[in-house]
Design a protein around this nucleic acid. Structure first.
Lengths: 225, 225
DNA sequence: TATACCATACTTCCATACCAGTGAAGCGAA
DNA sequence: TTCGCTTCACTGGTATGGAAGTATGGTATA
């Protein structure tokens, strides 16, 4: 066994946090929903304290809002936060695309091609979850190819609000169009054309600018300005 | 009175968190230092619980590390995290600079000029804290001028590790050189030259690439890879 | 009917007590 | 001296009770 796999059992509080975070991200716990220390604790069969600490962690992630003496609520999706994350992604991934186009790391580019294949399959199967995960891996590989793996970790945290929105949008929008954009990006990277790679990436991420208002308008209860 | 000024008193836990965060950022609590729930609670005169929750928040910020049954330690500064934040800043602020150069919002540009004046003064006075704050405001104004204020809020959180490093570096490096770079950026913005603004900004933020290794080498105990 | 008041049932927040894991000091045997 | 075991003080983790604040619905009053 890999020595790195030796870990200690995470605390109850951390486990509850992970569980809640996933459920929020996947839209299982909808924006605006009220959650209660007492209820969650009773449901799991533990005391209130670890649940409370999980709520605090969730609030640090921007996924919940604790209102003292009033209650704790799942955060609504902030349109401003989503657009901010989008802006940052466009700037950063444009630079990443330029860097990768210059070095053309074959191994990474091949893995990106495989992800596109997986996306085709997930699209055919109608498997939204698989599609989103592969989409993320595609973009993560770009950072890896640029030797900036840590950058993706930072972007991933910024994307928290965006991820929730995506679970709403992937059902509504044309996934094959997204895949086509991925293919264009990859083609430009393989061709070593930094300018083309950058503009393809920017166009891809600007797609969100038209989608976000539509999604927000469709379910206004889930969003705040 | 402005209705927006009606606020609720922050919880003890939140106050402790704020206090600790500031002290860590300013280097008052050095990287690697051990902190104890019991000691902090006794020093303030409260119970362990709110202190414990403040530690959890601090860990979410990446400023502390809680090791179960062992102790809680102030995080060492991750060189990888600093470089990642730097990369992101360069990409994002390059785009921001382009945007501002195109619109040339006079009011904002004037405020940037005032910040540069403040930086000259802080440099003369040897006031490191004032200098850093003005430096931050200068860059924040750029985001404001581009109509992307929320972007700065995100960058600010990413900068957490970088900020700690800056408190070490500002004493070691030439501040007047930094001010000169700010002036170059502002001149390009006023001239409406997007290319010049972008390259001046990139050069400014790449400065860190040479400084970080030197600072890390000077105080290796404070850093991790 | 409309309004002010109040009892009540929640909520999160804090204090306290106890639990289990850790690590270093102390001790004794080889 | 060196090694191994035991002990014990100390750590963060969890459970529980009560304090303080808030929302709500009923009730008395005009």
């Amino acid at each position: 066994m890999d020595i790195a796999r030796i870990t200690i059992a995470p605390s109850t509080s951390a486990q509850v946090h992970d569980w809640l975070r996933k459920r929020v991200q996947q839209g299982d716990l909808p924006p605006g929903m009220r959650i209660s220390e007492t209820e969650v604790a009773a449901a799991i069969g533990i005391s209130r304290q670890p649940v409370r600490e999980a709520f605090i962690r969730l609030a640090s992630d921007g996924l919940a809002e604790v209102r003292p003496q009033r209650g704790t609520y799942i955060s609504k999706i902030s349109v401003a936060a989503v657009l901010s994350a989008r802006f940052i992604r466009e700037a950063v991934e444009a630079d990443l695309a330029r860097a990768v186009a210059k070095t053309r790391p074959v191994a990474v580019l091949d893995r990106m091609a495989k992800e596109i294949a997986k996306q085709h399959k997930a699209d055919r199967d109608g498997n939204v979850e698989d599609f989103i995960e592969s989409d993320d891996r595609f973009h993560k590989l770009l950072a890896l190819g640029a030797g900036q793996e840590a950058v993706w970790a930072d972007l991933d945290r910024l994307k928290a609000q965006m991820n929730r929105l995506r679970h709403l949008s992937m059902r509504a929008f044309d996934r094959s169009f997204t895949i086509g954009q991925h293919q264009q990006i990859l083609d430009a990277l393989r061709g070593g054309d930094a300018d083309a790679a950058e503009s393809a990436m920017r166009a891809h991420l600007r797609q969100m600018l038209t989608e976000v208002p539509q999604i927000a308008a469709a379910q206004p209860d889930y969003f705040t300005a």
